[in-house]
Design a protein around this nucleic acid. Sequence first.
DNA 1: TCTTGACACCTAGTTACACAATGCCTAGAA
DNA 2: TTCTAGGCATTGTGTAACTAGGTGTCAAGA
Lengths: 105, 105
Amino acid sequence: MKGEALKGHLDLLLLAVVREGPLHGYAIIEELRRRSGGAFDLPEGTIYPALHRLERSKLLRSRWQSVGPRRRRRVYRLTRHGEAAFEEEKDQWRSFSGAMETVVA
Amino acid sequence: MKGEALKGHLDLLLLAVVREGPLHGYAIIEELRRRSGGAFDLPEGTIYPALHRLERSKLLRSRWQSVGPRRRRRVYRLTRHGEAAFEEEKDQWRSFSGAMETVVA
DNA sequence: TCTTGACACCTAGTTACACAATGCCTAGAA
DNA sequence: TTCTAGGCATTGTGTAACTAGGTGTCAAGA
């Protein structure tokens, strides 16, 4: 998958995945890879800042979950805002990709 | 249309439009607006640098055309390289948008 | 005549953002 | 013990679209 293709669409992907149920960062990466059939194989350096950004803008909420005695992970879930944003971004994606198709076709 | 949505896909749009026949910058903007039903209404500051970039990388070629006594426009046409790049970028777009759909759906 | 708006091109600076590189720590397997 | 994978994080960088200007031609109308 080419580098910059994602730009501006990563948030939608993250919202889509987290929407199915609370997940931590690492699991989000795996789920994204799985669901896309390997097309989206994103490095942590892409995911974590994006998750922080989404949390800052209240579309995601996180809490620490401990796993084992000392280990923690940050589990993200969608907020109500996030749910709405997902729907909206999905619509925007659809109209964008529709427009792309009419031009490219 | 949201800001960063285009990122990484502008080249494909430009190649697609110029491919139908030689066009100058201004006409490309109009054609893009027309073909997309208004969705892509791009400022000159986006188009011209992109055209220059595509010409530098040999996907487009340009020549000056005079229109009227003093007026000039730069007319772009696709090179063979550009034709190949178009096909390739189109494939990449299709697989990208397919992957997006499977994740978002 | 003067202005307005369409036509036509150009560029410097800013910003957003994905990504590469790297590091730290834990836990279980070899 | 050492290695590997899991898990989280930060920093720096490059790309590229956009903002905000600028130059100039030309026709129509006030």
